[in-house]
Design a protein around this nucleic acid. Structure first.
Lengths: 307, 307
DNA sequence: GTCAAATGGTAGTGTTGCTACAAAGCTTGG
DNA sequence: CCAAGCTTTGTAGCAACACTACCATTTGAC
């Protein structure tokens, strides 16, 4: 990563969030500008300074002052930052799903929401915790992934990545199985507990059991919570709350990305011969799962389809 | 969605992709500009016209011509569009993962890649297919989700969303179980086959069986493929190829988002009373899965933990 | 070698973002 | 309630920047 890219590492807030937060402390006419921008960010993006002043009913220097007060270095910079925020798309908090949305609107809104949500996770993920989690996983002789519901899906996905982790991974779906596995774990096992709320009773029970058995506990949560407190290492994947039934739960997605990061990080540090094994496995899997286009379909019971 | 937002609906290509594609057909000095931009897009973003000309060793009007040739309306517009692309972050195709990346670098790169990938899917998803898929699902009396490996995870996730779909959903992991379910399906069942490659032999077998049994087949794939051809409705979630072992497979993520879109779309059109049921379910689930902070841990065997 | 077309640079202009300064409005102390 | 002082907003001028019309140079073909 070169210095230029490093320098523009994203702040933990998006521009629209920053404007919303600054609104109360703004002067009256600056706030007018803020309202115009928040009301139609897509339109504001194409504004020239004069147009913006016109739309808000203020003078140009006021627009300038508005830019400064939200931490932008001039109007140009404001436009750039707004464009960046808009590139991700508005989360449903800013652009709600309505009954008369077409399929296209719906698709766009949900993609926008998801991408914004992942952007939020990206801005807020603690690098130090990631590093520590990778180290812990590198030291482990086996990993136990636990989670229920949507978090269970993440656990399943993580388990599927065991070749990258390089050690046996387990992810039982059943609560009792999870508890048993946690009970018989020890210092050489990492227990990876996943719960977006961080309050899920069953997950907490398993995590406590694992900890008392001497296992290192990594928690993947959405916010500060009992599970995060309990864990040796807490990974916080911050997303948007799912306030409405129409709000898709984006926490799963962020969780999966964090798993990707850890799996890649671990594989990277296991050295070249480990990577070679994975590469070989991948290419053989690729040939196995690709039916040659145009070839006759294989039927049940034929060779090579073993479950 | 207001007209202004609609107007700026994203094109199917990102700016960097467009530059890369235009490079061969460019004049020599324009290409110099392109090279400078592609080499360090983060730096180029903050360029003024003079700086850009300086860096590429050409004159300012040439920079201007470069902007026109890649379809930008002047230098200002170029800067905005570049900033938009950069907001998503560079995919690993442009910024490879290296051995000396810190955990922070790794996290950022993988998030960037994932977000770029979802952006690509967003740009390329066919709205008409989405609409048709929603209609098919609305008409179904039950849904069978099938997939293997990472696609199996998507199937599991989709199955978990059955309250939104409003009809019984099945997602057996075992191939034979899938085949049996497909065999006994009929016109009132939608079979939802998931395979990123669209070549997976087993998935194709199940999809064919379902189709010959009279079931409507929806395919969720990554590109044109036998499965897409076979299906009544093909949903293409276009992502980046995972060329390297370090490239996380982002197809899962895009698939999950498409599932979110369909589930939300179906739930939306089932009417208010259906939505009320979901709302009630959600709130009761929330109380169930939240352990009150500070309360004593519940142990295995106590009431309320039934599996 | 010469002509013509394509390519790249020079110089000038108009717009736009920005800043110094002045007027209006508001708050506070007497 | 009035006045002094400060905060807030607008006016006018300036500098920089993006953009354009025009000219020079190069390149390729006959």
């Amino acid at each position: 990563m070169n210095p230029a890219e490093l320098a523009q590492r994203a702040p933990s807030e998006t521009l629209l969030e920053r404007i919303t937060r600054s609104m109360p402390t703004m002067r009256k006419s600056e706030r007018k500008v803020g309202e115009v921008v928040l009301a139609a960010p897509g339109r504001a993006m194409n504004f020239t300074m004069a147009e913006c002043a016109e739309a808000a009913g203020v003078s140009e220097p006021t627009v300038m002052r508005f830019c400064s007060s939200i931490g932008c270095d001039g109007f140009q910079d404001f436009r750039i930052q707004l464009a960046q925020t808009m590139a991700l798309g508005l989360p449903v908090t800013h652009s709600a799903i309505t009954a008369d949305d077409t399929a296209g609107d719906l698709a766009e809104k949900i993609f926008n929401h998801t991408i914004s949500s992942l952007d939020r996770a990206r801005r807020n993920l603690d690098q130090d915790s990631v590093e520590r989690a990778i180290q812990a996983l590198l030291a482990a002789e086996s990993v136990l992934f636990v989670g229920f519901g949507a978090s269970g899906i993440i656990a399943q996905d993580a388990q599927q990545k065991f070749p990258l982790f390089g050690v046996p991974c387990d992810a039982p779906a059943d609560f009792h199985q999870q508890f048993i596995a946690a009970s018989v774990s020890g210092p050489r096992t990492v227990t990876f507990a996943i719960s977006n709320t961080g309050h899920t009773a069953e997950t907490l029970t398993v995590a406590r059991e694992a900890k008392s058995a001497g296992s290192t506990v990594i928690a993947l949560v959405g916010s500060d919570s009992p599970l995060a407190d309990l864990a040796d290492i807490a990974l916080k994947a911050v997303t948007f709350e799912d306030t409405d039934i129409y709000t898709p739960s984006t926490s799963r997605l962020a969780g999966l990305v964090v798993i990707d990061i850890l799996a890649t990080g671990v594989a990277m540090r296991r050295g070249p011969e480990h990577q070679e094994k994975i590469r070989r496995m991948k290419s053989r899997l690729a040939t196995m799962r690709h039916e040659v286009p145009g070839a006759p379909a294989r039927r049940v019971g034929e060779a090579g389809e073993g479950e």
